[in-house]
């Protein structure tokens, strides 16, 4: 039963109290204190369980007064003759107040559990929606890509464009899905001790097979020793791939993009340096906001404008930072810093 109005709840609660009082009243001279207190306590408990703390406490107080006034001799006065009746009265008051409080707390806890359950349910729904969305979007993309590839053997150059555009759509889908997960704050993290070698290798792998792969120069600051960090490999690769894609896209076609890694002051620092148009001082931070587009970049570049904001979100999720700084001689350097691990610590 759900009574919407608070006022209605109060009326019903006090009516119930009056009803029980009225039923007991004709027999008050035959009833012991226990009979009355237990009957009234029952009303207090019922009302507390149903009406909440304030109502429960008010009814408890009213029941206390009714008990004293109508049922403790001398009747119809608040005076108490027998000193032992004082004890009964005080115990009754404390019991009903504590019971009202406990019931209120139990209700509140149950409500919290229900809310948490509902929010978990919503998360599960979102996850399965994201999963089915990614499946539903990727399946046709797979077909388009594969058919374009088959047609390449016929020698039509346009099929390369179809394949390229399918890849571009796939990147946008990935960005949107990642942004949704970052936004929900339920991004799975798998932080492990990883080597910079491995991450740089995956960056090289990322551009393998692309016509502009030779523009990417990848190096270790200290090739003689292992540079290690504690980070999520997949997320860090996603950041680096975003930065490298941007750098290749916005630099002159004959300019190289330099990627480097090394440990500096307890952090593993990964840099992606381009010879692009650079980023003005007032845009340095703004480029990391979602859907931000620089005025200097007139074409959309084939992305949803989410790459850098996702990258920063991913960096911070694994206790790292991502900033952009001016590059000496023109262009921009993006710096990704991740917690480093001492090589000596490895047994």
């Amino acid at each position: 039963m759900r009574i919407r109005s608070r006022a209605a709840q109060w009326v019903i609660a006090f009516a119930l109290l009056a009803l029980v009082t009225g039923a007991l009243l004709p027999f008050r001279s035959h009833l012991g204190g226990a009979h009355v207190t237990l009957a009234l306590l029952l009303v207090v408990l019922a009302v507390s369980a149903w009406g909440g703390r304030l109502l429960g406490m008010s009814v408890a107080l009213a029941a206390f007064l009714i008990f004293d006034w109508l049922f403790l001799p001398p009747f119809n006065t608040l005076l108490v003759r027998n000193p032992l009746d004082w004890l009964v009265l005080v115990v009754f008051l404390i019991t009903s107040l504590v019971a009202a409080q406990l019931l209120y707390r139990a209700r509140a806890e149950r409500a919290a559990v229900e809310r948490a359950e509902a929010s978990r349910e919503a998360d599960r729904m979102k996850d399965s929606l994201v999963a089915s969305l990614s499946h539903d979007l990727r399946t046709p993309l797979t077909t388009i890509k594969a058919l374009a590839h088959e047609l390449q053997s016929v020698g039509d150059e346009r099929t390369f464009i179809i394949e390229e555009q399918a890849d571009r759509l796939n990147r946008i889908v990935n960005d949107l899905l990642d942004a949704a997960r970052l936004d929900q704050g339920n991004l799975p993290l798998d932080v492990q001790v990883n080597a910079a070698d491995d991450l740089l290798g995956a960056v090289v792998q990322h551009v393998a097979g692309r016509p502009d792969r030779h523009r990417l120069i990848v190096s270790l600051n200290d090739p003689a020793s292992l540079s290690l960090g504690r980070f999520d490999f997949v997320h860090s690769l996603r950041i680096m791939a975003n930065l490298v894609d941007n750098a290749l896209k916005y630099s002159p076609v004959d300019a190289q993009v330099e990627v480097s890694a090394g440990v500096e002051n307890g952090m593993l620092v990964l840099r992606v340096a381009d010879r692009g148009p650079g980023i003005s001082a007032d845009e340095k931070e703004r480029v990391f906001t979602p859907f931000y587009r620089s005025a200097k970049r007139t074409d959309s570049g084939g992305s949803a404008g989410l790459g850098l904001s996702i990258s920063r979100g991913l960096a911070e999720a694994q206790l790292g930072t991502l900033i952009s700084v001016d590059r000496k001689g023109g262009g921009t350097t993006f710096e990704l810093r991740l917690p480093a691990v001492e090589t000596d610590a490895i047994g």
Partner: peptide
């Protein structure tokens, strides 16, 4: 936990 480090080595 150092599997990846061993692979790097």
């Amino acid at each position: 936990q150092y599997l990846r480090v061993h692979v790097a080595n």
